[in-house]
Simulated scan of single mutants.
Amino acid sequence: MTTDRLPQQTRIGRTALRVGDLEEMTRFYRNVVGLDVLHRSDTSSVLGAEDTPLLILERVEDGRQRHRSGAGLFHNAFRVPSRESLGDAVARIREHWELSGASDHSVSEALYLTDPEDNGIEIYRDRPREDWPRSDDGSIRMGTYPLDLEAVEGAAAGDSGLPAGTDIGHVHLAVSSLETFRDFYVDTVGFEVQVDEPGAVFVSAGGYHHHIGANTWNQRSGPVGGRGLSWFEVLLPDPEALNVVQARLTDSQYPVIETADGIAVTGPNEIEVRFRTGT
């Protein structure tokens, strides 16, 4: 592998949220989003699809909401494997909650909602990669158009939860500086810019449309804190790739901490990113 870019198999792993009401939030992500509760304690819940953990909810004692000026999560994006499962998601949301938006992004079809503690959520399915529109230079063109919700709803299979194969397709962050975001995630970690537009940048590994998005639309100026994003995880395909990332981070201004299964670093806006190997 080259040392300046992440390998093609890189993807997003688990994400974690600090929450005030663990019971309510666990119920929401089970009934509305459709995740299975894999483990539950007095202080945390682990939810996922089949046996794969995707989301960790961590109860915080003070329960304070993240300050409006603070950076953090714009949305967690749960990627489902088919239009049928996206249709099932629409049905769950309509029955138990409220859909706040729906868009056709050319590369994907996406639903948007907000959880009880104001964390953004996207549930989406990708179109085949060969159908993604591209510019003359080969870069991906993502648009935002009305989604044909009737067609999506009509494809529903009637399943009550998210199917096997669901994962965290990407994480979208609200940040204070796109330049600092690029310095860390692109120049240091090794993601590649796929879309760069006023107020937002989307980066990925292996030519995906984006594994991490970032925007300054809400002019966040402070660090992450209180309720909201706790950390998210980048999965690398092998120990060699992890070693390369660790070396690059060690040479940066951001201190690296070794964890039980990888490393963690607190990057721009004090957002914690964890790296480990995973299939």
Rank of each mutant, 00 (worst) to 15 (best):
D131C: 07
Q219C: 11
L236V: 02
L235F: 04
F184M: 03
N243H: 15
G120L: 06
F184L: 07
V175E: 03
W231S: 01
G206K: 11
T166Y: 01
P128N: 03
L229N: 02
S176D: 13
H105R: 08
L242F: 15
V107S: 06
G154C: 12
T216P: 10
A205F: 14
Y208V: 02
R141I: 12
F181M: 01
D238Q: 11
S139C: 00
A200K: 06
G213E: 03
R134T: 10
A157W: 10
P146M: 08
P163K: 04
S160L: 15
S106G: 08
G190R: 01
E240Q: 15
A155K: 08
E150T: 14
A200M: 08
V189T: 00
V234D: 01
N119E: 08
E233R: 02
R129P: 07
P223A: 15
R127K: 07
G199D: 04
L113D: 11
S176F: 08
S139F: 00
D137Q: 08
Q219W: 12
P133G: 05
R141Y: 05
G213K: 01
L149G: 12
E197T: 04
S108F: 02
D183E: 10
G207P: 07
E117D: 08
T144F: 10
T166H: 02
V186C: 15
G138W: 04
W231E: 02
A157F: 09
N218C: 12
N119L: 07
